[in-house]
Amino acid sequence: MTPGIISANLAVIVIFSRGRCGLSGCITYYLVSMAVTDLLVIITAVILNRIAGIYFPFSFLSITPICSLRSALIFTAIDSSAWLTVTFTFDRFVAICCQKLKLKYCTEKTAAWVIGIVAALTSIKNAFLYFIYEPRYTINQVPWFCNVKAFFYISAAWAAYDWIRCIVTPFLPFILILLLNALTVRYILAANGARKRLRAHGNGENQTDPEMEKRKRSIILLFTISGSFILLYLLFFITILYVRIAKVTYFSGSNSSESTFTLEEKGFMLQFLSSCMNPFIYAGTQKKFRNELRNGLKYPFRQFIKFLRILK
């Protein structure tokens, strides 16, 4: 399954980078960056963490410093993926609802700056996670695996950091995405009602409206991406609240409760699923994306047939 998910995200990156899907440059920048971060989540969280941990438990990846670095990279990729969804949602809100700001904000240059700022801030935020771990075992003076240090739960500073981490991702993205989508829907309903009344008095109700059709496609893409994010990140948010309110610990082995383990693992599973969903969303909502994907799948067979004809 993992190779298929990696291939799907690579296909998304290649197809959107070619710019043949009829999308604006800023949308393409956001979608490509989201695909890149989703790919990084799969590589760091699934391959280097889960698969390597299960099948190669005593590899160099399990040495405590590497394990700590791996954790920081995982959460950096997850946070980047979440906040790029927010920035994409905001970009579409501006494009649809703020026509004056659209010309200045919805550009490739702005999108590149926003993506760079998100990457930098999420890296700084999660760099602190490197320092919360201690070795679970020390064998021949080599520290192995990662346990969360006890002071992480009793220190006021670390408790504040964990609450801030929870608020910044995923609580704040939840609120922003819901708010922006609500404002966007409100604007679209009002605008569509006005356009229908104008067309009813002018050319007739039954004629198709290209602008409304274009807006409809954009909204379907926006709502499927942001909606899947909200649903699939909800349990991760609940896990952080449960740990702090119920005063239990995150899963770190035998000292964790079964309820914490179950909740945390299901939350991570849905997070990883979120990184797998976007390629299917693009394929389901974008006709030109499906055409490009179909052409890409046919390309090797066409080249093989040409090669056979040359041999004949």
Results as ranks from 00 to 15, higher is better:
residue 1 M to L: 08
residue 3 P to E: 11
residue 9 N to M: 07
residue 10 L to D: 06
residue 13 I to R: 11
residue 18 R to W: 09
residue 18 R to I: 05
residue 20 R to S: 03
residue 28 T to M: 03
residue 29 Y to Q: 10
residue 34 M to D: 00
residue 35 A to W: 00
residue 35 A to N: 05
residue 36 V to F: 02
residue 39 L to Q: 01
residue 40 L to A: 15
residue 41 V to I: 14
residue 42 I to L: 14
residue 42 I to R: 02
residue 45 A to D: 01
residue 46 V to H: 01
residue 46 V to F: 05
residue 53 G to F: 01
residue 54 I to Y: 14
residue 56 F to G: 05
residue 56 F to T: 09
residue 57 P to W: 12
residue 57 P to R: 09
residue 57 P to E: 11
residue 60 F to K: 06
residue 60 F to Y: 11
residue 64 T to W: 02
residue 65 P to K: 08
residue 68 S to R: 02
residue 70 R to A: 06
residue 73 L to D: 04
residue 74 I to N: 01
residue 75 F to G: 00
residue 77 A to D: 01
residue 85 T to C: 14
residue 87 T to M: 06
residue 91 D to K: 00
residue 93 F to I: 00
residue 94 V to D: 11
residue 95 A to W: 10
residue 97 C to D: 07
residue 98 C to I: 07
residue 99 Q to N: 05
residue 101 L to T: 05
residue 101 L to G: 09
residue 102 K to C: 04
residue 102 K to W: 00
residue 102 K to D: 03
residue 102 K to H: 12
residue 104 K to R: 14
residue 107 T to W: 09
residue 108 E to K: 06
residue 108 E to C: 05
residue 112 A to M: 08
residue 119 A to K: 08
residue 123 S to N: 10
residue 124 I to Y: 11
residue 124 I to V: 15
residue 126 N to V: 06
residue 129 L to R: 00
residue 132 I to D: 00
residue 133 Y to I: 07
residue 133 Y to H: 15
residue 133 Y to S: 07
residue 140 N to E: 15
residue 140 N to Y: 15
residue 142 V to Q: 15
residue 144 W to Q: 04
residue 147 N to W: 03
residue 148 V to P: 02
residue 148 V to K: 11
residue 150 A to R: 11
residue 151 F to Y: 15
residue 152 F to W: 08
residue 155 S to T: 10
residue 156 A to S: 15
residue 159 A to Y: 08
residue 163 W to K: 12
residue 164 I to P: 00
residue 166 C to Q: 02
residue 168 V to P: 02
residue 169 T to A: 09
residue 172 L to D: 01
residue 179 L to M: 11
residue 179 L to V: 13
residue 180 L to T: 02
residue 181 N to V: 06
residue 184 T to K: 00
residue 190 A to Y: 11
residue 192 N to I: 01
residue 193 G to Q: 13
residue 196 K to W: 15
residue 198 L to P: 01
residue 200 A to E: 12
residue 205 E to S: 12
residue 206 N to K: 09
residue 213 E to T: 00
residue 216 K to D: 13
residue 216 K to N: 13
residue 219 I to H: 05
residue 219 I to S: 05
residue 221 L to F: 12
residue 224 T to L: 14
residue 227 G to S: 05
residue 228 S to T: 10
residue 230 I to S: 05
residue 235 L to F: 10
residue 236 F to W: 10
residue 240 I to Y: 00
residue 246 A to M: 15
residue 247 K to C: 13
residue 248 V to W: 12
residue 251 F to D: 04
residue 254 S to Y: 08
residue 254 S to D: 14
residue 259 S to N: 13
residue 265 E to N: 14
residue 265 E to H: 14
residue 268 F to E: 00
residue 268 F to T: 03
residue 269 M to W: 10
residue 272 F to L: 11
residue 275 S to I: 06
residue 280 F to W: 10
residue 281 I to V: 09
residue 282 Y to I: 02
residue 282 Y to P: 02
residue 284 G to F: 14
residue 285 T to Q: 06
residue 289 F to R: 03
residue 290 R to C: 13
residue 290 R to V: 03
residue 296 G to F: 11
residue 297 L to G: 09
residue 297 L to R: 06
residue 299 Y to D: 09
residue 299 Y to M: 07
residue 303 Q to N: 14
residue 304 F to K: 10
residue 305 I to M: 13
residue 310 I to P: 01
residue 311 L to S: 07
